[in-house]
Simulated scan of single mutants.
Amino acid sequence: MWTGIFAFTNLLALAAWAILILLPRKPLAMAAVLYCGIGLLCLMYSVLLVLLATGAVDPLRDAGLPPPGLADYSVAGLKSLFRSDGAIVLGWTHYLAFDLFVGLWIARDADAKGFGRVAQAPVLLATFLAGPLGLFAWLTIRERRARAQGRWE
């Protein structure tokens, strides 16, 4: 089950990223990325979170392990929390949804600031592959143009 959900979320995210990077930024394409990409990933995350947290589909733990300390935000505590396939798929879906949301924001911001699609593509690709790296690159690149336009949004 978890392998199938994992594969589906990856395929969904990949399709949305392909639309974002390769297709013209028409309203229908952007709506598809927002609602069919980000929205569906968020819905899947929400359902999985409830099912996992209630133990309806997976006890969030491999058999025989003690319950995780949900308030333990140390490295060891977080490692302990992600000790099942379901928890890994849940965490990965979280990453996919948020990185895609950041990519959509970067694309819209870049369009608004007059950056061409060729200049956007490496930043979007970096965001797809390593979210915070791409976001940091975009924040650095956009700074001069944002100041020149006198806007920070």
Rank of each mutant, 00 (worst) to 15 (best):
F6A: 05
L90Q: 13
Q120S: 14
D58R: 06
L125N: 04
W138C: 02
P67K: 15
T9E: 10
L48N: 05
V102P: 03
F115D: 06
P122N: 04
W105R: 12
S84N: 07
D99C: 09
L133G: 02
G114V: 10
G64N: 08
G39A: 04
D58G: 07
R25M: 09
G91Y: 09
L96W: 01
V123A: 06
R108P: 03
E143S: 11
L12F: 02
L60V: 08
R108K: 10
W2Y: 11
A53K: 12
G134R: 06
F6P: 01
A87N: 07
R144I: 14
V102M: 14
L135Y: 11
V57P: 05
V75T: 14
Y45E: 08
A148D: 08
L96C: 07
I5K: 03
S74A: 12
I21R: 01
T3L: 13
L104Q: 01
T54L: 12
P59A: 07
E153I: 15
I38P: 00
G77V: 05
G86F: 04
S74I: 11
D72N: 13
L48S: 02
L14Y: 02
L70A: 04
C36E: 00
I21M: 11
P59R: 07
F98W: 12
Q120E: 15
A32R: 00
Q149A: 15
L23A: 15
